[in-house]
Design a protein around this nucleic acid. Structure first.
Lengths: 332, 332
DNA sequence: ATTAGCACTCAGGAAATTATAGTGCTAGGA
DNA sequence: TCCTAGCACTATAATTTCCTGAGTGCTAAT
């Protein structure tokens, strides 16, 4: 249990460091809190021992450790109202009723990225939660046709394929069979059902069923591992002073560019009970100097995750406010 | 007109520099060409005067200038056959007949990016070349519906909208009116036609036509400025030694991340007569140290541009071979 | 418990040093 | 006239040295 003064000092250090990105020394503390530098040093040294603070080198000031940030967020951060300007910018988007939901989400996170200089990620609902609603085929030119797949959440995937020597009528027959037989199946199970429930039947009714079946099969396998990941402001982090080494930059870009990794990072849900989840440092799975704040949203028609990725030294209060605000507005 | 020896020296310098990224000095040349270092120096100094070579500082070796690269490509580069390994890797993709064309393209450029460490860009056909083929509406849940737009090239765009207090029947009527009235219109003209040819008519037949009209109008305006730009291997350039300054990196990322800029860069077609176009240095419009090699492809059903973006010091021969190979294979 | 005082540490920047990989130019030789 | 040996010169890049400033930890006194 920390003393009142220790709490004050920790809070001070976190907030100071978030703003200026420079280790905080005893002098500054002695001025802000009413005490001598020596006392401040003693307290800091204690806080370091508990693991809430760190030094960058033996004679440097202190910076918060990952645990320090977590403690701060849980116990010290005051949840003021949102900045007016933040709120106003987002409200413009949400008040525009002509925007589709997905546009609202991406536009609002675009705005957040611009305001904060952090990166945003939008992760669509995963393929298990999407049920096949409808497929459709549109002939394009000679032997080509576009296959369109729609899920109950309104996600659409399409693929143009070329089938030589196949009657379009046969394809249409296949489509209507699929629509009749397996509508409502979770997308990630469709290829299985296709094999066991559809293949035997089209074998009877459709000519060239081998070719046609294969084409559809491929469309669905592609769709499965393709749930949408949308990254906004991918290079915002370059603005932050802590990312000046080329090695670090490479590492981070590689993670942010890899949809699989990003999906893993944002989708893993350790604690379903919480609205907002925060992963700091190593826990972010990106870089020891980064942090991830994320939340799930759920509407009548869709669900997904939105996340903000920034330096460990993030404006937590602000970002949390922003995310909560967006979540609320989406869900309405 | 350059002498034989000058040509040899220029070629040597370009190829050496492409490989090692280090200015080439007279010693190396004197060894490879049969002459003394002093002669090499004289020749280099002449080549510099013509503008084919440059120095990085007063006492450095020489590097090719943008004009130097251009001269090299036009006159000196020998067009050997493709590297076997390059060809084999691509053939695996093109021989897989189950892949849709668009997948072939993106997969093959993915492979190229991986092999060469350059960035690839795929630019879809522009909205003027796409004609409206079909629109379709799929109801999703309560008041939501997904509108799907298909073009004659097989491009599909979709948007989920929410319309309160609107009968789905009215929406369907609107859809079939649009399909009857303006199918075949270039996508970038659809919103106009929508206004002048469709709006007056749905006004008569459809309830709540204001709302419905607005929704469709927005779908199409979004679609218009949305012709697909696909970037592969965006951070490959970090591998190159010439991009180690943070400022440069930021600048390049900003361009590569901005679809509008990228579209401008890759779509501008100075010279329609040529198959392959090359823009080096400033001309690349990205960075003075970068170059762009691009080509258009055209199939029965679709067309677009593929481009490779890399350092000025690119393996031109290899990349040209790769692009030509891909282009040919796409067009078949 | 707090604090003044002091010795100590380390990062970071400036200046000095050296090594090295090149150049340009001159003058002599084929 | 073309080539080349030789030499003085130059700029970078790497290494070292030195210095400063911002900070610490510890001890002893309040």
């Amino acid at each position: 249990m920390l003393t009142k003064r220790q709490n004050n000092i920790l809070k001070l250090i976190v907030e100071e460091y978030i703003q200026l990105a420079k280790p905080v020394g005893s002098d500054l503390i002695s001025k802000k809190i009413n005490c001598s530098p020596a006392t401040a040093r003693n307290e800091m040294s204690d806080l370091e021992e508990i693991g809430l603070l760190e030094k960058t080198h033996t004679s440097s000031g202190r910076i918060p450790s990952a645990t320090g940030y977590n403690y701060y967020i849980k116990n010290l951060m005051d949840r003021k109202k949102m900045k007016k300007s933040d709120m106003e910018k987002l409200e413009i988007i949400f008040n525009n009723h002509q925007l589709a939901l997905s546009d609202c989400i991406s536009k609002s996170l675009q705005v957040v990225s611009d305001m904060t200089s952090y990166t945003s990620v939008i992760l669509g609902s995963n393929s298990h939660d999407n049920l096949l609603k409808l497929i459709e085929v549109v002939p394009i030119g000679e032997n080509a046709m576009t296959i369109i797949v729609v899920t109950d959440k309104g996600h659409v995937e399409n693929k143009t394929i070329v089938l030589e020597d196949v009657e379009i009528e046969d394809v249409k027959k296949t489509v209507s069979l699929i629509n009749n037989l397996i509508t409502g199946t979770p997308i990630d199970e469709v290829s299985m059902k296709l094999e066991y429930e559809v293949k035997p039947i089209i074998g009877k009714y459709v000519n060239q069923h081998e070719q046609i079946y294969n084409a559809f099969y491929h469309v669905f396998t592609d769709f499965t591992d393709n749930n949408s990941v949308n990254v906004v402001g991918k290079n915002k982090f370059l603005e932050q002073p802590e990312f000046s080494s080329l090695e670090k930059i490479k590492g981070i870009y590689n993670k942010l560019d890899n949809k699989d990794i990003l999906r893993k990072i944002t989708s893993k849900n350790n604690d379903d009970s919480k609205d907002i989840e925060i992963y700091i440092g190593e826990e972010s799975q990106i870089d020891e100097d980064m942090a991830v704040i994320k939340t799930k949203y759920k509407t009548k028609t869709d669900e997904g995750t939105i996340a903000i990725i920034g330096p460990k030294r993030m404006e937590y209060e602000r970002v949390i406010n922003l995310l909560e605000f967006i979540k609320e507005n989406i869900e309405r």
